[in-house]
Amino acid sequence: MSHLERLPEGLVAPPDDGACDHLPGLRLPVLTLPATEGPPVDLSTLAGLTVLYAYPRTGQPEQPLPTDWDLIPGARGCTPQSCAFRDHHVELRDAGARVFGLSTQDTEYQVEAAGRLHLPFPLLSDVDLRLTHALKLPTFTVDGLTLLKRVTLIVRDGVIEKVFYPVFPPDQNAAQVLAWLLK
Results as ranks from 00 to 15, higher is better:
R150E: 07
A35T: 09
Q63Y: 03
S103F: 03
G25P: 07
G10M: 02
S2R: 10
V155G: 07
D171Q: 12
L43T: 12
V90C: 02
V99R: 09
G101N: 07
V111Y: 04
T67M: 08
P14K: 12
L31D: 08
L119Q: 08
V159T: 15
P56I: 01
D128C: 04
L28T: 11
H3P: 08
T104V: 11
L135V: 03
K183C: 09
A19C: 06
K136M: 01
V41T: 10
A97N: 08
H22Q: 09
A35H: 05
E37M: 10
F164Q: 04
V127P: 03
V127M: 02
L119V: 13
V41R: 07
A113D: 08
A35E: 05
G38Y: 03
E37D: 11
P166Q: 13
S82T: 14
T132K: 08
L124F: 09
E9L: 13
A114S: 14
R6W: 04
Y53L: 00
L52N: 03
Y53E: 00
V41E: 08
H88Y: 15
D17G: 04
D171R: 03
P8C: 03
P138C: 00
P120E: 06
G115L: 10
H89T: 12
P138S: 12
F121E: 10
T32Y: 03
H22P: 01
L4K: 02
G74N: 11
T141L: 01
P24N: 03
Q105L: 11
K149G: 02
D143Q: 06
C83D: 13
A75Y: 07
A179P: 00
P15C: 01
L23F: 05
L65H: 03
L43Q: 11
L117A: 07
L148G: 05
A13Y: 05
F100A: 06
G101Q: 06
Q172D: 07
P64A: 14
A13Q: 09
G74R: 05
A113S: 14
P15M: 07
T58V: 11
L182S: 10
Q110L: 15
Q60P: 00
L65A: 12
T36Q: 02
V127L: 12
P61Q: 12
A95Y: 11
D42T: 05
D171Y: 03
P170C: 07
A113K: 12
P15E: 15
Y55A: 09
L178M: 05
E62H: 14
A175C: 06
T32A: 15
A175V: 08
E5I: 01
L46V: 15
D87Y: 13
P24S: 08
C83Q: 13
R76T: 14
A75D: 11
L131C: 00
W69T: 00
G158E: 12
Q81L: 12
F168K: 10
L178T: 05
P170A: 15
T146S: 04
L102K: 02
K183L: 05
